[in-house]
Write a protein that binds this DNA or RNA. Sequence first.
DNA 1: GTACCCTTGGGC
DNA 2: GCCCAAGGGTAC
Length: 163
Amino acid sequence: MSSVETPYMETISHLPSSMDLLIQDSPNSFTSPRLKLLPASIEERTMKKEDTVQGKKQKIKTVFSQTQLYVLNDRFQRQKYLSLQQMQELANILKLSYKQFKTWFQNQRMKCMRWQKNNYPKNSNSVTQNSSYKYTKYPLCLKNKKKIILCKDGHGSPWWRLS
DNA sequence: GTACCCTTGGGC
DNA sequence: GCCCAAGGGTAC
């Protein structure tokens, strides 16, 4: 596999109408919806191994379905950070646990940051941060940890403050 | 609590 | 061997 691969392998030209309802909000500066397609045989498969192996706790590796990945990817393209409520709602819709949903977004952010670092090694600041303002509703990937504080305005809408 | 970051280990 | 979900540490 190439080291300069994009975070997403293949492009979907349009969205199924059933998905539109899930991803209609939060316009963003990122590109069109994309999806890493899985083989059909993997559809709707979630592997679980609860047992321990020789006293060691065995990890459970979830394999997300095509549908789940489609919605997750599309949502991530539009919005890198979701509020607690948004995560819980989408997790419910996708039949995922909140923890799985949150972990996927975290891993995706890391993937995005690594990709940006590889592709914009010199000008990463210009991509990840705009020093002219400190508040943004849709923060892009940031270089430094602990930069984002989730807040709410008077109407209960989530937004993010950069520390 | 969630964030970032690195590591671990399973699936392909 | 690569990808990536999940575990775990640390910071706030």
